[in-house]
Design a protein around this nucleic acid. Structure first.
Lengths: 313, 313
DNA sequence: AGTCTTGCATAAGAAAAACTCATCCCTGGG
DNA sequence: CCCAGGGATGAGTTTTTCTTATGCAAGACT
């Protein structure tokens, strides 16, 4: 995955200027001059080809599109700050740091984690749900990782949805997934009912960024084509959420039909919170893997977790 | 909120180098020379005072702390890329973009949103859950926003947990919150039972980054002091999650005791998924507010949403 | 109204950061 | 043992970013 990123310093200046709604104040926050801010903003506007501020006399105002992207921008800088903070603080005061995709964490890991915590009460856990743990098939890091500094206390393991080729890492396959459409049982039996995929034409499709990532873009479109009704159902309309968890929640609230990953939603299906009205399942190559560098795989905390996780599959 | 950020270009180079585990390949991806990569990494290492790569002959390896921060780093860059993408694509293909804190979205907004969608089926929604919608009391932007380009189609509204001082914005108070301890009912009645705050000394405390933000740091510590048992219970131990939703999930799975915001968890309490064993509630100044710039407040999509949201309170 | 003040824009030059080139060094493969 | 591959290093160059100085327009003040 190659990032196509804008000039990062200009972005940081923009964020400060947007926060203060003043180039001057932003400048003083950043310990630079007002002129420097003005330059940076201008270059960013030229780079983007979009006006970010409207200059109204002696004050500046954000354009609506600039304002709308601020939360995401803040989130981005916040993650970066957290990332470096994490490096600085080293041991992290935890024995085991688990990084996993949000849906996996909420629907699969959390219901089981209490059991692990009971068995290994001494292991201090840290669970980080990150939407970036989906990879195209293999990590881009093809080399054997060895010679890590073993004095460091914290051990990081990751759970990836990917193809399983992680050379240099110990990767244990947990389970494969398949994409299926889910809805509230009442909705499926309602009017119009959901009996076959073509019925989706009369229903609201719920989209989310996470599923786009798993499917490699246009998740619903692909699923519909897979079901043979790509032509008959418009995949573009419908509300869009930032996370699959929200889509599932929306589906259970009868807002529409969402895409979900089995077996993660099996408990929702069993409890009748959701139902899967169609047999059609799209099976991506990907599966969930527990991934960690070989060199830390035999630390007590890591191997205990690994052993436990595999016993849960 | 002032960000303390490292040299951003160096971070980007580091990410590429970590991905390839090769300075040479990273260099070619970034269209610069291997020497440039080497310099950047070195300067970042000096800035952080931490070794990021271990040089082992002709190959480089990540140190464990460097590797552990990668997911967060990727998440950061990804958000930045998404943010600028959003500016570029302008209208966003949606009529209404709602940005709200994750717990609010999952526990309050989603259960009600189906109703809104039914009433206003024409309004194309986009819901973005962002953990950065908590502010210290007021937005830092004190100016009246006017003269936005009204031709832009998408309207962005935000839901903030804050003090309600948003000059230039139309801010409608939704409801106040209070922090309370929650646990699984079985856990509370179990052995040792949870009868008064001091009993927490014998239980696992669940921490999360979101609650830290709300409380302004050391959430449990503050809550315990508020309950008068700051001395008797160790607030530092226990697993740590990246989101309050995960803490609540962990609590309901009997992993320990979490901090929660009322009234967001009221439905969990009503359904007996969770219980609030103590009367002690800590009431931060903050409340949830619907916030949007004055100038877009009267657009049809925005005013419909606003009216509906207020009717739900 | 006229004047002052405040804040952004702009141009030119200065400073700093980032990059390249040339070269060295080490390691592992043949 | 020698060679090739890949990273390190230092000097010098290019590019970016910043500052200083100044201009300009709008709101505040008298």
């Amino acid at each position: 995955m190659i990032y196509r990123l804008p000039p990062l310093n200009a972005l940081r200046v923009f964020e400060a200027a947007a926060r203060h709604l003043s180039f001057k104040d932003a400048a003083s926050e950043l310990s630079i001059t007002q002129a420097a801010v003005s330059h940076q903003i201008k270059s960013l506007e030229e780079y983007l080809g979009v006006e970010l501020f409207r200059r109204a006399g002696r004050r500046v105002q954000l354009t609506e599109s600039a304002r709308a992207c601020l939360p995401r921008l803040r989130e981005g800088f916040d993650s970066l700050a957290a990332a470096v903070e994490m490096i600085r603080e080293r041991a992290e005061e935890a024995d085991l740091l688990i990084t996993a995709p949000p849906v996996f964490t909420a629907r699969w890991l959390m219901p089981r984690l209490a059991d692990f915590a009971r068995r290994e009460p001494k292991i201090e856990l840290r669970v980080f749900a990150s939407s970036k743990m989906v990879d195209a098939g293999a990590l881009d890091s093809p080399t054997l990782v060895s010679g890590l500094d073993l004095r460091e206390d914290a051990s990081g393991v990751e759970i990836h949805l990917g193809g399983g080729h992680y050379p240099g890492y110990r990767a244990d396959r947990l389970f494969g997934v398949s994409m299926t459409a889910v809805a509230s049982p009442e909705l499926a039996k309602g009017d119009p009912p959901l009996r076959e995929p073509a019925d989706l034409a009369h229903h609201v499709l719920l989209h989310d960024d996470a599923m786009e990532l798993v499917a490699g873009g246009n998740a619903w479109q692909r699923w519909l084509e897979n079901a043979g009704v790509g032509e008959r159902v418009d995949a573009s309309r419908g509300p869009r959420f930032s996370s699959n968890i929200l889509s599932l929640e929306a589906a259970s609230q009868k807002l529409g039909v969402a895409l979900a990953l089995r077996p993660l939603v099996d408990s929702d299906l069993a409890s009748n919170r959701l139902c899967a009205p169609f047999k059609t399942e799209m099976k991506p190559q990907a599966a969930y893997y527990l991934v960690c560098p070989e060199v830390i795989a035999d630390r007590p905390a890591v191997s205990a977790f690994r052993k436990w996780l595999l016993s849960q599959v």
